[in-house]
Design a protein around this nucleic acid. Structure first.
Lengths: 197, 197
DNA sequence: GTCTATACTAAGATAGAC
DNA sequence: GTCTATCTTAGTATAGAC
């Protein structure tokens, strides 16, 4: 019977660990401020070994952002929406807060590192972001037509609501005075009133 | 009569230009991604010459952020507030949008580069940010006590409103379909309803 | 798949001439 | 006050041994 070498294969763990570590470091210090050597050190390998899993540093960033946004869109598709626009808006509000509070690092990167994407990669990420904005815009638009929302401008309302909800990630702490559910309830109260429902 | 040398003194222009250039480059590419040589090239001097005006790169970033936030607080002090809480909230909403749209680069840096501040500098900047949040919180608090606002949570409402208003800077374009005034009016409509006024 | 070693480039900051 | 030149450190990425 053999014992595995100390320096043997770790292909089943190094790949995921690399992404986990990079996500945390990019969120904390910024993409440009984090070196491949730092990432490698936290993963527990030498810098050269990382290139068995990624094409380059830019590819790593792009992969993290694309995965996050695709997860976001897929999760909303899987979320039970209510019947009418008011129920759908409440579902969206609670979903957005919950989803974003569960992945603060991925959210941070998706909003802060757009500048560091090369043009082709930027176009892909922007497309995914637009698709998510459209989800909310469609809800608001349907509600306005049905006469349950009063909105001066549907497009701006969508942007305003998303900005307001995403802002939660900048201050929320798990050991703070409010639970996630309580925060979601308070924000839903403000969103509902803002759209005139 | 003398003609100034081509390589003569520019002390009255290089200092301000350095800050202008750095602000634009930091906003566009991020603090960590911009080199002193890039900045120097755009200013039109060699890298070494920059150190006649700044202690180091970190000091430059800190100076830009502190100046921006001090300008913000001073500008609000100079702004005519209305009599009651409702008028004050409208004044704050319009002021915040106007002030932020006038300085997109400074705003971007103040929100995105907090991670790149050294601890002592970070503490100063956070203090200034808190002071500005408190401005809005006090308005909301006064309005709630006077019975003109209906708010589930004053603190969260302040954070929500600021996030919503600041979000304008991420999508507004001068050649877009809406003027700044029109945007401010639409946002004031939503803010007013959100606080139950 | 990971290591060691390294090629190559560029960074922040300083010294001394003019 | 700016330039040229340079010190020192560190970055991304690759080559070849194991």
């Amino acid at each position: 019977m053999f014992m595995a070498r100390t320096c043997g294969s770790h292909s089943q763990t190094t790949g995921p660990r690399l992404r986990d570590v990079a996500q945390r470091l990019f969120a904390r210090h910024g993409y440009a401020a984090v070196s491949m050597r730092q990432i490698a050190a936290e993963v527990g390998v030498q810098a050269g070994a990382l290139y068995n899993y990624i094409p380059d540093k830019q590819g790593l960033l792009f992969d993290l952002m694309r995965t996050h946004l695709e997860d976001l869109l897929a999760a909303w598709q899987a979320e039970p929406h209510g019947a009418g626009p008011l129920e759908a808006l409440e579902a969206f509000t609670r979903f957005h807060i919950r989803f974003h509070l569960e992945r603060p690092d991925a959210v941070f990167i998706a909003y802060m590192e757009l500048r560091n994407l090369e043009p082709e990669n930027f176009a892909v990420i922007e497309g995914l972001r637009k698709r998510y904005e459209t989800v909310l815009e469609d809800i608001l638009s349907a509600g306005k037509q049905a006469g349950v929302f009063t909105l001066p401008d549907t497009k701006l309302a969508a942007l305003a609501v998303i900005a307001m909800l995403t802002g939660v990630t900048t201050w929320y702490r798990d050991d703070g005075r409010l639970s996630r559910d309580r925060v979601a309830r308070i924000y839903w109260n403000m969103v509902r009133k803002a759209v005139g429902a």
